[in-house]
């Protein structure tokens, strides 16, 4: 780890100004990902601007009944918040499914969105990686890729985004607010993550120096009946190999509204629009849930060792939607 300067920011304007002034500076939130990457040499900032104590740690109800979540709210506080649990249980469940109690106490909402992939090649500076070192190659495609992307990847990178929280947020059309030296801005979460294409090192559409200040979840009654299911290679304290955030509204056996997003299948949380379109207006049964999953997964381009994810995601969609349909019927 190289030596670095450290400043604790007093307010958002000051934080943004500090970063603007120093191209080698990075924001430090909970540090759970950044400090690790600094130890492994993946990140080598010259200065850290500590934003952890900025007054961005509130969760408020918006006028329309949505939720506005401050960027420095910890994962723990987000998951435990009664309004989050009431209005969007899938978000609470997603956060609780991630990392460990200790890490959730440290990690912030803003940092969670911007965490880097856990691809083993990315994390190892002795290996090629187009995301870390553009043009050096992607060894995962011919090498170890059991937990890599099946959707939206490219020949340049097949890494997956590791966040659970972002999967739930993406299912409910979250909007990211940020601040730069030029003023505030907003981005739908759907547009936050850039397509992989031939620039896997360019991960988000945030302007340089932008500080995420909040994430807003618009009101969505369907979110009150939502669920997050995560499959991993041990029962806890592990990243997903596949996950689903889902919400379902059924009337007279017919799907009225549905939200579906997948985790651990792409470089970003994967909103399953095709599946949603296929489902609205169709019977709420396993056969149609499976057909909807197939509609989404038709675009999957698995590698030899991660083809199981196609089956896994299909089965997960059926299982989670079936559970939600049964719950709605009760």
């Amino acid at each position: 780890m190289r030596e670095f300067g450290y400043r604790r920011a007093d307010d958002v304007t000051g934080a943004v100004a500090l970063l603007d002034a120093d191209p080698g500076a990075r924001y430090l939130g909970g540090g759970t990902n950044l400090v690790d990457l600094m130890k492994t040499g993946v990140e080598r900032p010259a200065r850290l601007v500590d934003i952890r104590r900025l007054p961005l740690d509130g969760i408020e109800l918006t006028d329309d009944g949505g939720l506005r979540i401050g960027a420095t709210v910890t994962n723990s506080d987000l998951a435990a918040h009664p309004e989050v649990r009431r209005r969007c249980p899938a978000l609470s469940q997603a956060v609780l499914a991630g990392a460990s109690g200790q890490l959730r106490n440290m990690a912030t909402v803003g940092g969670n969105l911007l965490q880097r992939t856990r691809c083993g090649y990315f994390a190892d500076v002795t290996k090629p990686c187009n995301k870390r070192e553009p043009g050096s190659g992607c060894p995962a495609i011919e090498g170890e890729h059991r937990n890599h992307a099946i959707l939206g990847a490219s020949e340049h990178c097949v890494a997956v985004h590791p966040s659970d929280m972002a999967v739930a947020l993406s299912a409910f059309d979250a909007v990211v607010s940020y601040q730069t030296a030029d003023g505030p801005g907003e981005l739908p979460l759907a547009d936050l993550y850039l397509p992989v294409s031939d620039t896997p090192h360019r991960e988000t559409a945030l302007p340089r120096g932008a500080l995420i200040t909040a994430v807003t979840l618009p009101a969505a009654p369907v979110a009150a009946r939502s669920r997050y299911r995560k499959v991993r290679e041990r029962a806890s304290y592990a990243f997903a190999i596949g996950s689903v955030a889902a919400a379902l509204e059924v009337h007279d056996g017919v799907v009225r509204d549905v939200r579906l997003a997948f985790g651990a299948v792409a470089s970003r949380p994967w909103r399953a629009h095709a599946a949603e379109r296929a489902l609205v207006g169709s019977p709420a049964d396993a056969e149609h849930f499976a057909a909807a999953a197939d509609a989404e997964l038709a675009a999957a381009r698995p590698l030899p060792d991660n083809a199981y994810k196609v089956t896994l995601m299909r089965n997960l969609v059926v299982a989670v939607l079936t559970d939600l349909a049964q719950e709605a019927a009760r």
């Binding site: 856990r118 090649y121 060894p139 011919e142 090498g143 170890e144 041990r234 029962a235 806890s236 990243f239």
Partner: peptide
Amino acid sequence: AVRDPAFGGLYGGDLAGYHIASHAD
């Protein structure tokens, strides 16, 4: 432990890559 044929070393040679049972298991 997954040994990478291309490089000869481990892929994910740490406690996040090499899973031992956790409490929940």
